[in-house]
Amino acid sequence: MTTAIAGVFAVHPYTPHCQVIHDEGDHAVIGISSGNGYFTHERVLDLANWGLEHFRQVDLIWTDLHVAEMFEALGYPPVEAQRKAVKNLRGVRAKVTGAVGFLDPEGKRLRGRPMSALLEIPAYQRIRTRLDDLLTADPEFREVCDQLAARFLAGKLNGQPPTDRQREVCIKYVCAEVPLFLDTPAILDVPSSLNCYHQALPLAELLYARGYGLRASRNQGHAIINPVDTQEQPA
């Protein structure tokens, strides 16, 4: 994996081919997690600015699917779970729309949208249906999803093992994002796309492995980007 310093971020394309997609500079999708303290107003603005410096088009996409379900699975009463979800989503939406309004108010190159806005796109629907099938038919994909769920829940359960309900809701949350790691170009109608996140994910090991199985499309790339003063060195 190569590393390049770009502005205030260190960029780690996951494979040499991901580096090519990065260098082509067609499109970047930057995932913004709700309720994650990493994504401050300043950080979201910096990420958007970095994207515009290096790509012709940028999408900031925040997760808004299954958030209330997750809070409820973690033990909050339904009304409180909904309230917390609304509060978190209001906050992340304000950060994204604020960055778009400041940097590209006409939305010519920078767009902000929730994950739910993708649900009506046929390519997203097709990929999401395939993932549902693979959860039962592909042990390798299911194992990776279980790993992601365990990683997400580890910091929320104070060392307690997750329940089946918690694990299943978390996997639904994860699978809502996976299509953007598989084929953003088909979903958003761009020539090629680099999916950017600030942590190494087990999912990337699967999607960019050699051989057969669930693999990212040829014009889909992935990179880990971190502020240069706190950059995470990927394994």
Rank of each mutant, 00 (worst) to 15 (best):
R111Y: 07
E24L: 15
L60G: 01
L207P: 01
A81E: 02
V190Y: 05
F71R: 04
G31V: 09
P227A: 06
L135Q: 13
W62C: 00
V11Y: 03
Q57F: 09
L60I: 12
Q57T: 15
A6H: 11
K156H: 03
E72G: 03
G7L: 02
I61W: 04
I225M: 11
G37Q: 11
Y124K: 03
R130P: 04
R130H: 15
A200H: 10
D164R: 14
D229A: 06
L206S: 00
V100T: 09
I21V: 15
R83D: 11
L180D: 01
R126N: 14
K95T: 14
P16F: 02
T136M: 12
F71I: 04
V44Y: 03
Q82I: 04
P227M: 08
A10S: 11
G98K: 05
V174Q: 13
V144E: 02
E42D: 11
I225H: 05
N49K: 12
D64S: 11
Q19D: 14
Y124G: 01
I225G: 02
V228T: 14
F71T: 02
E53T: 15
P139N: 07
Y208D: 01
Y208P: 00
V190F: 07
Q147P: 02
L214D: 00
Q19V: 10
A223F: 04
V190P: 05
C145Q: 12
V20H: 12
E177F: 01
A137R: 15
C170M: 13
A186R: 03
C18G: 02
G51N: 09
A10R: 14
C145V: 10
F39C: 04
A73Q: 02
Q160F: 07
R165K: 15
E232R: 10
P162E: 06
Q57I: 10
E143A: 14
G221S: 00
D138R: 05
R126L: 13
V67W: 00
R111Q: 13
R130L: 14
P161M: 10
N36D: 15
Y14N: 00
L194M: 14
R142Y: 06
E143Y: 07
T230N: 13
V67N: 00
T230P: 05
H17L: 06
E120Q: 13
D133R: 13
L157Y: 07
K87H: 10
T97C: 08
N158L: 11
A176K: 09
N88E: 15
M1S: 11
R167Q: 15
A200N: 11
V58H: 01
A200P: 11
T63W: 10
H22Y: 14
G159M: 05
P139E: 09
L206R: 00
F71H: 13
L131F: 11
V228A: 08
A176P: 08
H17Y: 07
R151D: 12
N88L: 12
D189N: 13
Q82H: 06
N219I: 13
T230W: 09
D23I: 08
L134C: 04
R165V: 15
